[in-house]
Design a binder for these strands. Structure first.
Lengths: 207, 207
DNA sequence: AAATTTACCATACATATGTATGGTATTTTA
DNA sequence: TAAAATACCATACATATGTATGGTAAATTT
């Protein structure tokens, strides 16, 4: 994905992403300028040129609201960026990890949710499979029995959440895998969000 | 959903839906006028007023590309409209039907697909459940083993497709249900489309 | 039979919109 | 140290855009 964005260019791109995800409508130059307090659209225009030159957007000439995101599939970007969600921990493969995920830079997808791609077999008894896309909301409180995305040391897992007296348990549906028990004071643990939906493509699936 | 649209109003609404679904961008008045060959935008403006008055869209005043669809959840409308897809057969409960569906008026959703809501248990061994939303593409050829939506007499079913020598078989994954065998000359049978994806909301699901 | 709705036309208006050009100051890169 | 990129500013322009008003003819409703 081409070159790095500057801080301001990144902020502008994030704003564009937010607008598209929330209102399903890319902003105009004037709307961007208004949001960032610029006194004219030319400033935005130049930032957009840079962002486009670096490959993050495409602009349809002369077309109003013509900004298009050029991500791989509109939701994901190639590199995992869990650090942005889980306070700087890069995503690696957890030793026992049966579920690993690829996080999007687009941190808020429909409203305030984002998407993850599921890897691994531990959820198959919950009818979630490798390749399924799960939709995660980071602003919902985890409730017993719900599926959550959690970061444990350097790994991301998708499991059922159960709060016990002095610990939290993460259960796989597949009984082959033991529940993970996390002490309340465990340092490198964080609930990333609650799974609110799943999507499965059947395009290439037969039998 | 308020009053009925006229034929032309319906065509304009369909065009708006297509544009939103395909390009994720509502059209401007000028674009609509151009598509339908109108010599001015005022004609479109008046049609949009009528469509809005009847409750199918909302217009954000002064906002370019400000047309918003006012369907229940952007995909479905309350009444089943299978007739539009399956040549005038209203959707009723098929005697043996274990799968019934509620079709959207929006006949082409992401590209050329539409959405159905699954009812019944016959697909549970394929990990598709009541309440799941399936995405159906009517322009893909049915291949053995793929899930298809078919209309049989007055019922819509979702089953696996198998073409035999002189017949077509529709299999449930659940072995409790016998396969449906359709003779090649059976009159009231039609493949509506191929299931290309499923979506499941887990918002209200625990345990 | 009268009134309303529908389906187009034409013209006009204020503002929104993408774009172009040129300028200044600071920071980063070569 | 010189060149390039960054981050703003101001002004200008052609056209796009939503909207308003008024008109005509046919179909539908009351």
């Amino acid at each position: 994905m081409a070159r790095e964005l500057t801080v301001i260019q990144r902020k502008i791109l994030d704003y564009i992403i937010d607008r598209i995800k929330i209102y399903n409508l890319p902003p105009t130059l004037a709307e961007i300028a208004g949001y960032f307090g610029y006194n004219n659209r030319a400033t935005v225009q130049q930032h957009l040129s840079a962002i486009e030159r670096k490959g993050y957007i495409h602009r349809n000439p002369k077309l109003s609201r013509g900004i298009v995101l050029t991500f791989e599939d509109k939701f994901f970007v190639p590199k995992p960026v869990l650090g942005e969600v889980a306070a700087g921990n890069p995503l690696t493969i957890y030793p026992d990890a049966i579920d690993t995920v690829a996080l999007p830079t687009v941190a808020k997808t429909p409203r305030d949710s984002f998407l993850l791609k599921v890897k691994g077999e531990s959820l198959k008894d919950a009818y979630i499979f490798t390749g399924d896309i799960i939709i995660v909301n980071p602003n919902i409180e985890a409730v017993n029995g719900k599926f959550v995305v959690a970061v444990l040391d350097d790994a991301a897992v998708v499991k059922r959440f159960y709060r016990e007296r002095s610990s939290i348990e993460l259960h796989s549906e597949n009984p082959e895998y033991e529940p993970i028990v996390i002490d309340k004071n465990y340092p490198n643990f964080k609930i990333v969000g609650v799974v609110v939906g799943i999507y499965r493509s059947m395009e290439k699936m037969v039998g």
